[in-house]
Design a protein around this nucleic acid. Structure first.
Lengths: 340, 340
DNA sequence: TATTAACACGAAATCGTTTTCGAAGGCTGT
DNA sequence: ACAGCCTTCGAAAACGATTTCGTGTTAATA
């Protein structure tokens, strides 16, 4: 009942030819006579011969696997990136090995070391918050020093020389803030996180830039720095109650969604009394009530580009070390949580 | 600058011993003298020697990779399952290769064939709608006939003998419907999909069972069968307008979320005038306005169990063919879209 | 002193491919 | 008839590791 996979050796023995002949015949080599080729090919088809990927990988030193290391997969943005990566990789015959760092430095290191020992041809990754906090990138450096191509996306670092793909987070926050200012909002708050997260920092910068440009002075009271990207209901509730804001920009969508609930509970009307804009245009933004104006990060596109850059590096023979950083433009998607 | 990976051969040459000695020394074999072992181990540590996974895989015929084939990854439920799989697999030293079938039969087949040629030790998968529509499972049968362990979850079929993990979809729908009946709802509708999707069929069955049990006659008008799991706003809008329902059960959360918007636009109050219960307790359910009562599918648990069953099969030497189907109990999570 | 056993190590096969090189055998041309 | 040239194939190395089975040396025993 068990139909075990057949190998070149089996075919060779059965047809009383050598393994090399079989190998060549299946590659339609000119070296082998038409007769022999037909015989071997027919036999191979009959027994559904498929070459063993592992053996080929060992021979070629190419696995056709891409390692993707992300902090979390239950997160719409990362999920769309993975989809983009998978789509492009698939068209090029690559498989995607997904590893979750779970926002932990240690797991990120372990996962990468495991994969780096021949399992993959290159890495695409977004740094865990743990890594950004530790500010230790030796595991990345080791990988690149071994000649394994690496592409960082979204949560990146300048400490490592490699290809990078990000959106212009500062620009996104800037555009959002500007939009709020133009809608005559006077007290614009921001809910962000501690600065060690590269994206949060950039977004806060964009917010500050817009304020400055319009001659609005920054108020500490209007800036809420959450300890992490995790929800902390109490902090947000107090912030909205005490800060007297009439508009809030948040670095993810969940902070906005929850903020809107708090605001509504306080009897505030959205967007008349208070506007909201969130980062990451995910499902929640679209289906919240009211729907949330948000800054699209174009995750899928980001994934495609990352995969394209990586595979290009993998398959380029010449080892010219030139690293690019691709910066995507964020898009402001206006919905019902802002005026008009 | 490029620190290429070092192999046993390099160490052997450098230390003027044989490859076998190096291999044994690094495994701390009793065969090798203490002196030699220490020398070799020190050298290996110094040059950061790590065995090549591919070579080991070829030798052992074990890759320590699990292939996960799912219809879509931008989908909260599948995402949680993947996380569960990854978590468990990781503790057992396995990596997860994720392939997306994109709901297409062809892609599912191609992906599986690719992985089946030595890249993975076993499969965990959920059928694409394309496959369930075609009702063709030969690619699954071929895999199992080759002795590759397979675990199906959520979207399964009885045509293939293998381990399976599902939730009791019928029970979930039954519980939800019962809850609505007990809350004195008189016209309970359901938004489901065509019957070829195994889960939708089971959920519809549970809904019907509850009605029957309470002596409520089924009305065609109260059943909306969507062509797929994709949103079709027009169909839902018309259904709510015309069917005069005072409660709706939906086979996913997005149908409920959108349904609630339509209802509110029509001036209906939730849950006073109309109640909603959706399947798949995802982020949307929690953060919708009003929040959505829903049936939790326990995706992460499902992933863990799938991985556990698969790895158990992979690592069990004895080939006793016994297949289990694990049925998880759904949980009704009550929120503001139903009374109380 | 001769025999044996323990110890420490190496040669070679193996996993399944690919690829280089060489070698028969038939054929042509002179 | 013989050098030389295709045509067609096989042997063997290589990828990087594991493992079995020797084998040579030394120390212990009769």
């Amino acid at each position: 009942m068990l139909k075990k996979k057949i190998t070149l050796k089996h075919i060779a023995r059965e047809l009383e030819v050598s393994i090399s002949t079989v190998s060549k015949a299946l590659k339609n080599s000119e070296e082998i006579s038409r007769e022999t080729k037909e015989k071997i090919q027919a036999f191979a088809k009959l027994y559904n011969y498929k070459p063993n990927n592992i053996a080929i990988s060992l021979k070629n030193k190419r696995t056709k696997n891409i390692g993707v290391v992300i902090p979390d997969i239950v997160h719409h943005f990362f999920t769309t990136v993975v989809r983009g990566i998978e789509k492009y990789a698939n068209t090029k015959g690559y498989n995607v090995i997904v590893c979750l760092s779970d926002e932990s430095f240690d797991k990120e290191v372990i996962n990468m070391e495991l994969l780096a020992n021949g399992s993959i041809d290159g890495f695409i990754m977004s740094l865990s918050s743990g890594t950004q906090k530790e500010n230790d990138y030796n595991h990345l450096k080791e990988v690149t020093e071994q000649g394994i191509p690496l592409v960082l996306f979204d949560r990146i670092t300048n400490e490592v020389e490699c290809d990078k793909v990000i959106i212009d987070d500062a620009l996104g926050a800037y555009l959002a803030t500007k939009k709020l200012i133009e809608q005559n909002r006077k007290r614009i708050g921001i809910i962000t996180t501690s600065d060690y997260l590269s994206v949060s920092k950039a977004r806060t910068t964009g917010y500050q830039k817009a304020l400055k440009e319009f001659g609005i002075s920054e108020e500490d009271e209007l800036i809420l720095k959450m300890p992490s990207m995790e929800m902390n209901e109490k902090l947000i509730k107090e912030f909205i109650k005490n800060s007297q804001v009439d508009a809030i920009l948040t670095v993810n969508e969940i902070f906005s969604i929850y903020g809107m609930q708090v605001a509504q509970d306080l009897g505030l009307k959205i967007p008349e009394d208070i506007s909201f804009i969130g980062f990451t245009d995910g499902l929640l933004s679209k289906y919240a009530n009211p729907s949330l104006t948000s800054i699209a990060q174009h995750g899928e596109r980001m994934g495609e580009i990352s995969a394209e850059m990586l595979i290009q590096k993998i398959e380029s023979e010449n080892e010219e070390e030139s690293y690019k950083t691709k910066i995507l433009e964020p898009t402001l998607i206006e919905r019902d949580s802002t005026i008009n």
